[in-house]
Every structure is written in C-alpha cells, then in structure tokens.
C-alpha cells in the first residue's frame, strides 16, 4: 500500500526527485563526497574541485566534514542519513521524498533529528514529503491521522 502510494507520487517527478530510501542506497565504492557531488557533476557538469568544495560546504553545516572521505560501510546511521539527504538536495529544484526514514536511522526515537537536518539545508530544496507507516505516527507527533 505504502509502496504503491510512493510509486504513484514519484511517477511524474523523476527529473526533480531527491529520494531518500533504503531502496536507493549510497554507492558503496565511492567516498561520501563523491556520492553527494555526483549529482551536480553529472547533471550540471560541475568540475570536480567545485563540486567537492560545494559538498564540503554542506557537510560543514552539519559539522560532518570529517566523513567526506569515508565509505558507506564506515558511516553511522545518522551520518548515512545526512549523506543521503545531501545527495537528494543536490538535485536541481529538488523535491525531497523521505521513504520510511526510521529504517535508515533506527536508533532515532522521534522526528526531531529529521526536521533539524532538513532545517539546516532548507535553502536547497523546494519541497519535502515523508512517507511512512501509520503506526509510526507517534514518532512524528501526529495525533489525528486524517487531519495530517
């Protein structure tokens, strides 16, 4: 049911979709900065140095520039989430879609980490949508499902 809703939502948004999902993992043989910079390098033909500097600038917002040269397997859950978020935000006029974010950050109890992370790069994306199971509504502080 959730997969179908997600699929229907993303169907016409491929050009601007910034997906954060366990079904779109980081590329394991690339460093963190390359995973993020790849989007700009490929779509906007940004030179390597410029793309790297841009990536480091965004990582600095989270005080995570130290992870730039790490690989996926060396990241914590939160670090991985931030990298996936930054990668999604690199898409031009990005519509960020978070697909079941608590599967990426299982050690996080509520949505504060997610919203704080989104706040730090609020200038980098157009919209953000979160898709999750109804039984996680408490984690988002949602009382009435219909109203939300």
């Amino acid at each position: 049911m959730l997969d179908k809703e997600l699929s229907d939502f993303t169907a016409n948004k491929k050009q601007t979709l910034g997906l954060i999902s366990m079904d779109a993992p980081l590329i394991s043989n690339l460093d963190v900065w390359v995973n993020i910079a790849l989007i700009k390098q490929y779509h906007e033909n940004l030179p390597k140095k410029t793309a790297k500097n841009l990536t480091l600038h965004y990582l600095q917002r989270y005080r995570m520039e130290y992870i730039a040269d790490k690989r996926n397997s060396a990241l914590t859950h939160k670090e991985r989430f931030i990298v996936m978020l930054l990668r999604a935000a690199m898409v031009k006029d990005s519509i960020i879609v978070l697909d079941r974010p608590f599967t990426i950050i299982p050690d996080v109890q509520d949505d504060r980490f997610i919203y704080d992370a989104l706040q730090l790069i609020s200038d980098s994306f157009k919209e953000c949508h979160i898709f999750d199971y109804m039984w996680f509504k408490d984690r988002y502080g949602i009382i009435n499902v219909e109203k939300s």
């Binding site: 910034g18 997906l19 590329i27 394991s28 043989n29 790849l38």
Partner: peptide
C-alpha cells in the same frame, strides 16, 4: 563490481537520480 552493484540496488539508485 557490476554484479555487486546490481545486488545492492546501487544501479537502481543511479536510475532514481537520472544518472
């Protein structure tokens, strides 16, 4: 490398981001 990327769904990631 390519087989591992296929198994890990990394090829799908590239497709998701229009690469």
């Amino acid at each position: 490398e390519i087989a591992v990327m296929k198994v890990n769904k990394e090829l799908r990631t590239l497709d998701t981001f229009n690469i």
